[in-house]
Design a protein around this nucleic acid. Sequence first.
DNA 1: CATGCATTTTACTCGTTGGTATATCGTATA
DNA 2: TATACGATATACCAACGAGTAAAATGCATG
Lengths: 217, 217
Amino acid sequence: MTARDAQPPRIPDPDSPWRPVRERARSRELKRDAVILAAARAFKERGYHNTSLDDLAARLHVTKPTIYHYVENKEQILFECFRTGLDRIRAGFAAVERSAAPGRERLAVVVRSYAEAVASDFGWCMVRAENQDLSPAMSRRIKALKSEIDQGLRQLVTDGILDGSIRADCDPKMTAFALAGALNWIAHWHRPGESLTAAGIADLFLDLFENGLRPRS
Amino acid sequence: MTARDAQPPRIPDPDSPWRPVRERARSRELKRDAVILAAARAFKERGYHNTSLDDLAARLHVTKPTIYHYVENKEQILFECFRTGLDRIRAGFAAVERSAAPGRERLAVVVRSYAEAVASDFGWCMVRAENQDLSPAMSRRIKALKSEIDQGLRQLVTDGILDGSIRADCDPKMTAFALAGALNWIAHWHRPGESLTAAGIADLFLDLFENGLRPRS
DNA sequence: CATGCATTTTACTCGTTGGTATATCGTATA
DNA sequence: TATACGATATACCAACGAGTAAAATGCATG
C-alpha cells in the first residue's frame, strides 16, 4: 500500500457523456450506463478494490456524489457489471433456443457469442470479480445467473450426445467446465486490438474442442 | 461494506502450529509456512482484500505483530502464495524435461500435475488473485513465472506437432490458452471432497482435449 | 422574472486496516 | 540465578475510502 496505487495516470475517458466544461447531455439512463461502463473498464485495469469511487468519478469528469446520484453504492456498480456481461452470454443461449440444429452446432453458436461477451469490457467483471464482494443477496442472484449458463452448456452437450453430433462418452459436466474455463480465461489474456478478435478465438477453440489434438487417421 | 465481512465465523485452523494455550513448537520456517498456508486458505474463502491481517492472525491464534515477525507485509504473503502455487506447476514441467516421450504424452503428464496444483490450497492465489495487488517489482516476477508456464505449454504442443503426436493444424498459442483456461478454471468450481479428484478431472479433460467432441467414425 | 426540480459540488464523517513503537514473556545458556 | 534474545502481545497511528449532509448551480416552465 505505498506508491503503487498512483501508477495509472488517471486517463480521462473519451466516452464520458460529461464534457469537461459545458455541453452536458441529459438522459439519466445514458449517464447511468456510462457510469457502469467506465467502472467496468476501471475494474478491468486496476481491480475492484483498487478502484476508488473518487477515481471513477475523476475519469468521468465528475465528483463522487454525482455517481451516487445514479447508483446506490459501489456494490451495485459491480453487480450491474456482472449482470451486463452475463446477460450477453445468456442472449447467446436464447438465440439457439428454438433451433432444430444438432447439439454440436448450437453449442458452436453459443461459444461464439460467449467469446464475444468475455472479450468485451464486461468480461473482467464476469470472470475475475469475486462474488464475495457482493452482499449475500446480490451474490445469490449472480450465482443463479452463472448456474443457468453452466446448466445451459451442459444441456447442449447432452443434446449433442443424444442426437449423435457429440461423442457419446463425453461427460457433460466436465465438458461444460472445460469449455467455460477456456472461454472465461480469454478475459485474462485478451487485449483488444492485439492478436485475434473474439470471433477468431472462438473458431480456433471450436476446432480444437470438436476435433481434438490427436491426429485423425 | 456492512455486515457481509462478518459472515464466516472465523474458524480456528487446526493446522496452526500455535496451540491455543501453551505447547508451542519452534522452527521459524514451519511457522512462516503456516502463515502462508493459512493465508492461502483465507484468501480462497474470503478474497485477498476481504481478509485483514487481524483475521489471519486470529485464525492462527496469534496477534497481528506476530505475523509481521515472520513476513514483511501483506503483499509478501500474497506473493508467496502465488509463488508456491506456480512452482508446483513448474515442477510438472521439470518432470518431463528429459523425457523422450512424444509431445502429447508429455503434455498429459504436465496437465495432470497442473490440475493438482490448481486444485490445491494455492490454486486460488495462482488463478484469481490480481497481480495488480502486487508492487510492480513483485508483479513482474509473477508475470515471468506465468509466462514461463505459458511458453512451456506452447512448446509441448509444438513438440507434439513436430513428432506427429498432435494434429498438425493446431495453433500452439491458442491451444495453450484453451488448456490453461480449462485447467485454471478448476480453481473456481472445485471443492475438495466433493465430486472428482484433481487426477480424475485431469483425465477427463485429457480425453476431451485429445479426442474432441466429434464422434470418431 | 420567479419558482421548482434535477443535477452537481464542497466539505465533511467515520469505520476499517495496514503497519509500528514499545513492553512483556519464555526459555536456553552461562 | 542472572542474562540475553527470540517470540508474542498491547496499544497505538495515519491513511484511505465509502458514504452523506447541505449548499450551490443549471435549467425549464409558468
